[in-house]
Nucleic acid binder design. Structure first.
Length: 762
DNA sequence: GTTCTAGAAC
DNA sequence: GTTCTAGAAC
């Protein structure tokens, strides 16, 4: 890297650092300064407003001039005052103008209770803030606090939210020698993962997995889940730092400051992560009882080794709890290393729900597997196998039978796996680490020489496996075992529609080619108005005849023909269809909008949509309904917590009458916009039972094809609460336990497992 | 149907 | 600056 060159050629320069402490009275600012100054080899000056007037309180101007003098003398400076709002900080930040001084913030964002109790207890405080009045002052100050952002002009911000964070920060600054400088960016905040620069995004677009990149949703946070009155400042801020000369970290980098208030919830995370990302649990430290300190050293070592090798990929260490020891250890150890905070960070959350619950997009996850590679045991292994469904088990078996400690195996996840559809995970990498637990096979009996070596090997294999995925996905993102349906469908339609290709898998590359060839003109409207007939034939050739009055409804684009082609020639795709009979074809929706989402496709020619359906088709509707029910019941046997709804879109986008059988969790990364949601959750969606009634009594269905329905506000399908955008809606529905509206509970509109309370569905 | 983009809206 | 939407492409 060019950094090495710089280090070799440019001698390190003595560079003062201006540290602006941010914290309420009692947060420990003065103690922090004193401790650092007591052990640092760097000359420090503490500028304290409480004592600057000859031991008595002074004013801001005095502080500013005192700090200026010290910085001129080449000394590093602590600004020891509360600095809780932006305005207070701004003038001090200006002292760092120019490249010669690094301006840092150290935020002592400790619980208010703690600050208050310290303030109340202390005597002889320099600022005379002690005893009873302290509580009121601290409370008032904290109500108005504004956490610092990089955009204010800081080159580094360290957030401390508990004593251990403070210790780490103390250590960082105490050991900062006169010639050292610290890495730029935000550290220690609860949600370090997050957005990446748009420019980088564009650059990455070509190298990504289509499904993982399918959505650009972000902003996942649910105001309804916040305690009212609590600080809900999930403010995001991006800042690009251009090169700063004479600094160890003089590369251009963009970092994000995500100041998080007192709400301690990973659900607050905001992410736009289309970059290849490996999420991995700590290997061997759980059930295999590997020493945490040693494991943390190895993680840091291996991350340092690999993270810089990845140009456009990220590694994320995941654990379930904020209290995770291994996360704290790694965070502490990584602080001193020169590792880009965007290429590696830690994340608190469930590795099987990183996207749906944490907003963190990871296309690859690592599994702390057992040597048999079976779903047994507990912890991460059981959770991942469970979440990925039987698909992972079979895909794993196909690939490898067993794995010895220190090794990893990459398994592409079939597209039918819930982890694929819901979370965008395309690969699972099984890793087996060393075992120190005598209750488990292959115990190393505390031999850490061997153990460390094996753990190092395990991480090497894991990261190399990830690297191979990243490399291979560059231009052929859909792997062999992934989404056969899509591929076949593409072939099918290509062969059948001689003029208009419907290529899905190939879309990206095709688009790129198109740029060179120029775009075809749009051809909606007149030219396309030839076309469709409605005889009862299955011969697609009838399409080129004339239209009858009943079907003046719609003009179908080339892309909308896929289902029609399947209905006409299901045998060509038989391996990818769930069921074929004389009347219907059943298939998985290519872009499922829920955990289970299948289509029951009518095979009758000329039946493009509900508008075309008449009394004569009643028997067919009944049949479609029965087949749909049968599949719903099959899925309910596998997972009794699901709830299904069967129905039609008033105005479908795809030609050929099809019944949606869709589970009501709507957990899918393919559900991306208002139209998607509203097409299943407004009157636009017509329940199959109602349609059959209407056809039976009136000979036609009451269509609700008003476009307004599709652009209606987003409301939860259970509790009817409104949500401002899709990410927030999804977050809400992932936990909403309200019963379904009464209307849906009637007339068999919802299908659930016998005995399963429909009000308590996941 | 999905994807991408630009520009509006926040 | 980020997020959302609409329009156009296929």
């Amino acid at each position: 890297m060019d950094m090495d060159v710089e280090e070799a050629s440019a001698p390190k320069e003595r560079k003062p650092v201006l540290v602006i402490l941010v914290g309420a009275p009692g947060s420990g600012k003065s103690t922090f300064c004193e401790e650092v100054m007591g052990s640092s080899t760097r000359p420090w000056v503490r500028v304290c407003q409480d004592t600057i007037g000859n031991g008595k309180a002074g004013n801001k101007a005095q502080c500013l001039s005192s700090a200026t003098r010290a910085l001129k003398d080449g000394k590093s400076v602590f600004i020891d005052r509360c600095n809780l709002d932006r305005e207070q900080r701004s003038e001090f930040i200006k002292l760092g103008d120019g490249p010669q001084i690094d301006v840092h913030a150290v935020v002592l964002d400790l619980p208010a209770k703690l600050c208050i109790s310290r303030s109340v207890k202390r005597t002889g405080h320099e600022g005379n803030l002690q005893g009873g009045k302290a509580a009121a002052v601290v409370n008032r100050m904290l109500q108005h606090k504004e956490l610092p952002k990089l955009s204010e002009g800081f080159s580094r911000i360290t957030f401390c939210q508990n004593e251990s964070d403070v210790k780490n920060a103390l250590n960082t600054y105490s050991t900062l020698g006169p010639l050292d400088s610290l890495q730029y960016g935000c550290f220690g905040q609860k949600n370090p993962d997050s957005k990446i620069q748009v420019g980088i995004m564009k650059f990455l677009k070509r190298a990504e997995v289509p499904v993982a990149a399918a959505s650009r949703e972000s902003g996942i946070e649910d105001p309804t889940s916040q305690t009212p009155g609590k600080n809900n400042s999930c403010c995001k801020d991006k800042q690009t730092f251009s090169s700063i000369p004479d600094n160890d970290n003089s590369e251009t980098k963009e970092v994000e400051n995500q100041a998080v208030g007192s709400v301690d919830s990973h659900a607050n995370q905001v992410s736009l992560d289309d970059i290849p990302t490996l999420a991995f649990p700590s290997i061997s430290t759980s059930d295999f009882q590997f020493n945490h300190e040693k494991a943390a050293d190895i993680i840091v070592e291996k991350v340092a080794e690999f993270s810089n090798k990845f140009r456009n990929a990220r590694l994320v260490l995941v654990d379930l709890s904020h209290k995770s020891k291994i996360l704290s250890l790694v965070k502490a150890k990584i602080a001193g290393k020169n590792i880009d905070a965007q290429k590696f960070f830690t994340h608190v959350g469930d590795i099987t729900h990183l996207y749906s619950r944490g907003g963190l997009r990871c296309n690859v996850i690592a599994n702390a597997a057992n040597w048999r590679l079976n779903p047994g045991g507990g912890g991460v292994n059981a959770a991942i196998f469970n979440a990925a469904g039987p698909e992972l088990e079979s895909a794993t078996k196909e690939k490898v039978q067993s794995l010895s400690p220190g090794n990893a195996a990459v398994v592409p996840l079939p597209s039918s796996s819930p982890l694929f559809t819901r979370e965008g995970v395309t690969h699972v990498i099984h890793v087996v680490g060393p075992n120190m637990n005598p209750q488990r096979p292959n115990c190393l009996n505390n031999d850490y020489n061997k153990g460390c070596k094996i753990l190092q090997d395990a991480y090497t294999s894991l990261f190399e496996g990830f690297a191979s995925i990243v490399r291979n996905q560059t231009w052929h993102p859909v792997g062999k075992s992934e989404n056969l349906e899509r591929k076949s469908l593409e072939l099918q339609v290509q062969s059948d529609c001689s003029r208009n290709y419907f290529t899905k898998t190939d879309q990206k590359s095709k688009r790129d080619v198109d740029h060179g060839l120029g775009k075809s003109k749009k051809y909606k409207g007149t030219r396309d108005d030839s076309g469709l007939t409605f005889t009862d034939s299955r011969n697609e050739n009838v399409d080129s005849e004339h239209r009858t009055e009943r079907s003046m409804t719609k003009t179908w684009g080339s892309w909308a023909q896929a289902l029609h082609q399947i209905a006409m020639h299901p045998e060509k795709l038989k391996d990818d269809l769930l069921e074929i009979s004389d009347d219907v074809v059943v298939l998985n929706d290519m872009y499922p909008k829920a955990r289970k989402h299948v289509l029951v496709l009518a095979r009758t020619g000329g039946l493009d949509c509900l508008a075309d359906v008449q009394k004569e088709h009643l028997q067919l509707l009944n049949k479609m309904h029965d087949v749909g029910l049968k599949w719903a019941e099959k899925f309910l046997n596998e997972n009794a917590s699901l709830v299904f709804r069967l129905g039609y879109h008033s105005a479908p986008s795809m030609r050929q009458l099809h019944l949606h059988v869709i589970s009501q969790d709507f957990e899918s990364i393919h559900l991306k916009n208002k139209k998607h949601w509203n097409s299943f959750n407004t009157a636009f969606f017509l329940d199959s039972v109602d349609v059959m009634d209407e056809i039976s009594s009136d000979g036609k269905a009451k269509l609700k094809d008003d476009d307004k329905l599709l652009s209606m506000e987003l409301r939860c399908h259970r509790c009817r609460s409104a949500h401002p955008n899709i990410p927030r809606l999804k977050l809400h529905i992932s936990s909403c336990q309200s019963p379904f509206p009464a209307h849906l509970l009637q007339h068999g509109r919802l299908v659930h497992a016998p005995g399963e309370p429909h009000s308590n569905v996941q």
